[in-house]
Structure formats: C-alpha cells, structure tokens
C-alpha cells in the first residue's frame, strides 16, 4: 500500500513549496495560453479558465496520495494538470489535435487523466459528486484506503445531486472530500443572489451532519493543510468533509466573457490576493531567493511555450477517431 503520511504544511521545506509554486505558475501560464489561443481562433468551442484558482488544485493534489481519485468540473484544467496532465496534452486537446489528452474527443470541458486518478471533468453541474461518492464507496469495498475528492463551484451547491451526495456519503461514512471552489459567481450571477446562506457549501454541511471548513482558497498551504486533515479523517474511517475554499477567477466565466458584472473594486481586491503572490510571500519567509523564484518562472514559461509550439505542430485528430471508444471493445456497433 502507498505511504499515507502527508506532512503538515509547517514541515514543508523551501524545495517543496517552490515546487507547488512552480506548478501553479505552470497552470497560470497554460490558462493564459488557452485564453490567447481561443481568442486567435486556434481553440474552438469553449473554455472555462481557472486562472486565479490554481492554489485549490495544487494544494489539494499535493495533500493526496497518488492513487486517490479526483473528479472535477468543466473548469478543470488546473485539476488535470495538478494530477499530472502536461500543458502540451491539455493544449493539444483544446486545439483538437490527435495528441490531445482525450484524443480530441473531450475538449476543454472534459480533461481527464485516468492513469493518475483524475477521473474526469464533467459539464453537467453537480453530476460528478455522486461519482466521487461511488469511487469512495468502491475504495472502501476494496479496502484500499484511497479517498475521492469532488471539486465543484459555489453554484453547484444548489443542485439536487449535491445534497444527495452529501447525505449518502454521510450515512455510509465514505472517504470522500467535497471541495467547493467558491469563486462567488455561478456564471454571471453572484452566488449570494441565489443562495439563502452566506457560505453556500459549508453552511449546508451541518444539515447532513458533516464537518466543514471555510478556508482561503488562494493560499496553497492553507488548502494543502485542510485537505490533508480531511483526507486523514477519511482514511481513518471518520467520513466525509466539506471544504469551502474561497477564491476568484481572473478571467470571465467562459470563452471571451469580459466579466463586466463584477464590481471593479471587488476584482481589484482579489487581484491583490493572487495565489502566486501569496506563495511568493511564503517562499520569502522560507528564505528562497528572488533568483530561485525567477528561475522557476522561467522554467514554467519555457514548458508552456514549448507546449504551445508542440500542440500547434501536432497532427489534427484522425477522422476515424469519431467512431472509436463507444464500447469497451473500442468499437461502436449498435446492431447486427
């Protein structure tokens, strides 16, 4: 069985925290590239970027075991990358290339890296929470001490599947974590305008007899510790936890949305609370030099620049791909 001890954030050294920072920078740059490629027409369809929300994915992933399960939403690039998908695989998928993460059959909203337990990004709001519950149930049945994590938005707390999931996970005491990325908007509507409680996820946890925590989702070490504690409880058989990580998206909801419905002072406040800046402060406190941080920035820039080039130069999806992978035998036959 995999080593289960995950050290508290206070015991992480400069090297560990720099790695978290670099991974966030990698996601930030990939999201920026996805935005620019969409604007220039090379990415079709839609994107829902997670720039600004990197700390939730990176902090959580670092606190999990490699064999744990992660389920995400259409705003899921950061979760795929935090679980090991490369910028190149992701950008190639967005650009409909044969080398894409899902061989161009998923697109931006469905990034998946099953080989490292990232079991998908789902575009029907709330649909993946029951799946995470099922993965946790399966872990229990197989006796593996794995945990499953569902990441979802604030808007997701008002759909039935959210409440069905919390209740079932609670009564079966399953090793599942419900991590809400509260970015304060469901599409274009402030969450407070459509939700009767101030903390859309955490305030509902009590109704299902679940513990909850509201945390600064932009501080990667805070996220890391909250997820570490919740995962430890889950592995010990103490059941699910609801974590509400407050964060903010830097881009609009999707595509080219300029997000003008957000007040300027609110945007400014959150841009001043950027997860990358917070991590840089953490690195400063650990005596990491500016030079070392800049080198990490340069490495991330290089990886993403190379990824953009590689994705651009990759072959388009093979048309035959449209007809594969319906069934487990790889085919699509529905009749004799």
């Amino acid at each position: 069985m995999t080593e289960t001890t995950v050290r508290p954030a206070s015991e992480l050294d400069a090297h560990d925290v720099l790695a978290l920072y670099e991974q966030m920078q990698l996601i930030r740059r990939t999201e920026r590239a996805a935005h620019d490629l969409f604007m220039s027409g090379l990415v079709k369809g839609t994107t829902h970027l997670a720039a600004g929300q990197e700390a939730v994915a990176v902090g959580a992933s670092a606190a999990l075991r490699p064999d744990d399960y992660v389920f995400a939403t259409y705003r899921g690039h950061h979760h795929a990358m935090a679980r090991g998908a490369t910028p190149e695989e992701c950008l190639a998928e967005l650009m409909s290339r044969a080398t894409g993460l899902c061989r161009a059959k998923g697109g931006s909203m469905h990034l998946t890296k099953a080989s490292s337990g990232m079991l998908g990004s789902y575009a029907i709001v709330g649909s993946h929470l029951p799946m995470a519950v099922g993965a946790a149930w399966s872990a229990r049945l197989r006796g593996t001490e794995q945990v499953a994590v569902a990441f979802f938005g604030d808007g997701t707390t008002n759909i039935g599947a959210f409440h069905e999931s919390l209740n079932l996970a609670a009564v079966w005491r399953l090793p599942v974590l419900f991590v809400c990325e509260n970015n304060f908007y469901m599409e274009y509507t402030p969450i407070g305008a459509v939700t009767a409680v101030p903390h859309p996820a955490a305030d509902r946890a009590g109704a299902h007899a679940l513990p909850s925590e509201v945390i600064d989702g932009n501080d990667v070490l805070v996220v890391y510790d909250a997820v570490r504690r919740a995962a430890e409880r889950a592995r010990a058989g103490d059941g699910p936890t609801v974590i509400e990580a407050e964060t903010y998206r830097h881009f609009g909801h999707s595509r080219a949305d300029p997000a003008t419905y957000r007040p300027a002072d609110e945007v400014e406040r959150w841009l001043d609370h950027d997860p990358l800046d917070i991590a840089r402060d953490r690195l400063g406190a650990l005596n990491v030099s500016d030079d070392a941080v800049e080198q990490a920035d340069a490495r991330a820039r290089r990886v993403v620049d190379d990824a953009i080039e590689a994705a651009k130069n990759a072959p388009d999806a093979d048309p035959a791909e449209a007809f594969t992978d319906v069934w487990a035998d790889g085919g699509n036959a529905w009749r004799t």
Binding site: L119, M131, A135
Partner: peptide
C-alpha cells in the same frame, strides 16, 4: 441520482 451516479463512480474504479 446518487444511486446511479455512485454506481458509475464505483464502476470506473
């Protein structure tokens, strides 16, 4: 939803 969704998550794992 939880019944069928959990079945799906279990089947995937």
């Amino acid at each position: 939803q939880a019944i069928v969704g959990a079945a799906m998550g279990a089947a995937m794992t």
